[in-house]
Amino acid sequence: MLDRMRSQPIAPQVFETEPVPHLIGGRHRQTGRIVFPLDANDEQFQACALPSAGTLWSYTIQRFRPKSPPYAGPESFEPFAVGYVELPDAVIVEGRLTGVAFDQLRIGMPMRLTVIALRTDPDGSSVTTYAFRPA
């Protein structure tokens, strides 16, 4: 479990954990089109909470450590899954996938947003990010 006192989100206004973990999207003021992430500098969009659950739209496995910068994960690398999740009546969002064996991933499987540690530093503090896990 994450030590909430000593964890910090990767960036503000990307996700929230209460009442349940969800992403913060942007709703176009005129057209209603929903995007992610919210661009706080774009006045055409107002913040909106995105649905927490959806279905897996596509996925892949990241087999090699991405270059740093920009990647800010731990030095020691374990392959991770990445995918797109369709949040009903909202938008399809990209994110990391967690809590599932790679060979169990299937397009269409129900997924739910969660928060994971991107990395935990030696002092025990961690940087968190959002991810989708099987619902």
């Binding site: 990767i10 892949t60 991405p66 990647y71 994960g73 991770f80 990445v82 990010t129």
Partner: peptide, 16 residues
């Protein structure tokens, strides 16, 4: 943060 969490890769796009 998009790059920091490991999504800034063209290879992922083509694969998905």
């Amino acid at each position: 943060w998009y790059g920091e969490i490991g999504l800034m890769l063209t290879t992922q796009f083509f694969a998905t």
